[in-house]
């Protein structure tokens, strides 16, 4: 068991009023798992992560991470976990990326040979060779995030905590990062705990999803089960060359909404988007298509409604 919490809670006292940010979180994560930790803003995700990493003291319950008490054994824990905050940097702003890695290795006292090996692997998989000698402040966000993830992995952590790792990244960068993290997790020696607002992150990386709201665990289940039960369908947005009537009767389509006098149609569907596009193209002349994924917010909204 790499994470084990029982009744974990955290109150903040504001003007003598106790406000519970996290009320009662019980969580068991096995070694090698990949868990998506979801919830709306203010649900208590970050507070929970802070308690798991030892930078915030719980006001109720217990937490063990890697068998350690996070707050009391923070330094020992820091050697065994890696943390990536999408909105904060652990790299040295004015140093070349390679030197940030060297420093990070030194702080974690990673033996030189092991450091070299681990770094080479990350550099290759994340395609970082071209900008290793660029100062961090001159990197693009996508390049920097690759650096952040590498830094968090250099000391071979047992647990990698990722807080909004893909926030603000372009699609290609998100995809590259997901592929890499999936590969890291697939080897089985690194457990992933991931918070995100991006459903594709969860789909690519996590088999298990924990949804919290108002500081409590709402759902803790297998992702596939969860989707079957709660998530909405995807929506194909079709822009037409000429106005047309509602495109009813296409394979897999469960609902049609018409906008812009029939110039744009929203087809809620199940199954393959490719087949649906081909089928629609035979009926009307299409100028453009996009596929809208059901968002985490949609999923969570459905969860609340149920």
């Amino acid at each position: 068991m790499i994470i084990q919490t029982r009744g974990l809670g955290r109150d903040f006292v504001v003007r003598r009023t106790r406000i519970p940010a996290v009320a009662d979180v019980g969580l068991d994560v096995e070694r090698g798992e990949a868990v998506g930790f979801l919830g709306p803003n203010g649900a208590g995700k970050s507070t929970t992560i802070k308690m798991l990493t030892g930078v915030l003291v719980p006001t109720a319950g217990t937490a063990r991470v890697c068998g350690l008490d996070p707050v009391r054994e923070r330094k020992a824990l820091a050697r065994r976990i890696g943390v990536v905050f999408g909105q904060r940097s652990q790299l040295w702003w004015d140093l070349p990326l390679a030197e940030s890695f060297a420093l990070h290795g030194a702080i974690h006292r990673v033996p030189a040979a092991r450091h070299r090996e681990r770094l080479d692997e990350c550099v290759e998989l994340l395609d970082m060779a071209a900008f290793l000698s660029t100062p961090v402040r001159q990197l693009s966000l996508g390049q920097r995030m690759r650096g952040e993830v590498t830094a968090a992995l250099l000391h071979s952590p047992e647990l990698l905590v990722l807080d909004e790792p893909t926030i603000g990244l372009d699609l290609a960068s998100k995809e590259r990062l997901r592929t890499f993290l999936a590969a890291v997790n697939a080897r089985g020696d690194v457990t992933l705990l991931l918070t995100t607002h991006d459903l594709p992150d969860v789909e690519r990386l996590c088999r298990r999803v924990v949804v919290i709201d108002k500081g409590r665990v709402l759902v803790d289940d297998d992702l596939a089960t969860l989707r079957r039960r709660f998530a909405g369908n995807r929506t194909l947005v079709v822009d037409l060359v000429e106005p047309a009537g509602p495109l009813h009767g296409l394979h897999g389509v469960v609902d049609v909404a018409v906008e812009a006098q029939g110039m744009r149609q929203r087809l809620e569907f199940t199954g393959s988007a490719a087949g649906l596009i081909a089928e629609a193209a035979r009926r009307v002349e299409i100028r453009d298509v996009t596929v809208d994924e059901p968002s985490i917010e949609d999923l969570v909204r459905t969860l609340y409604a149920s």
């Binding site: 923070r74 820091a78 905050f85 974690h108």
Partner: peptide, 17 residues
């Protein structure tokens, strides 16, 4: 800015560092 969370989370002596 709250970035100090990262500094406190490292296995080092922050003042010495």
């Amino acid at each position: 800015t709250g970035d100090v969370v990262i500094d406190l989370g490292r296995p080092w002596d922050l003042q010495a560092a």
